[in-house]
């Protein structure tokens, strides 16, 4: 049984987690109209025999989505981190949004920011 070191909850059995698949694929922006980009995101997988970056969610625990690096040949886990680049903010502030808006473009969000 895989044992995953949740950065929030500690070392836990795999059956507390939900698998989320390949984390190396890039999700297009929500308003990206390019079918090819979405096709590749949804369907095309490198599927390496070796180190695999993948999502797991600690559903019976902190419910954070995690990014795990694991070797598909022997299941050895090399690293675990929160999938969010920064952990979820405890409180919402306008400044955090302003900072983030530099990195992601989103016309919908701009209208409210």
């Amino acid at each position: 049984m895989l044992r995953i070191e949740c950065p929030c909850c500690g070392l836990r059995d795999q059956d507390e987690f939900r698998y989320g698949g390949d984390a190396s694929v890039t999700r297009p922006g929500h308003d990206d109209p390019d079918p090819e980009a979405w096709y590749r995101y949804v369907y095309v997988r490198a599927n390496p025999a070796g180190l695999h970056r993948e999502f797991w969610q600690h559903v019976i625990g902190c419910r954070q989505w995690l990014m795990v690096e694991r070797d598909t040949r022997n299941h050895a886990i090399a690293s675990v981190a929160f999938a969010r680049k920064a952990p979820a903010k405890k409180s919402f502030t306008q400044t955090s949004l302003a900072q983030k808006s530099l990195t992601k473009k989103s016309p919908v969000r701009k209208s409210t920011a």
Binding site: G20, A83, R84, F92, L97, T103, K104
Partner: peptide, 19 residues
């Protein structure tokens, strides 16, 4: 359960800028 997980996935991985 699937819907909740999916929403959390989108917030954690796709749109972390959404508050």
């Amino acid at each position: 359960a699937d819907v909740l997980s999916r929403l959390e996935f989108l917030l954690d991985t796709a749109w972390p800028d959404l508050r």
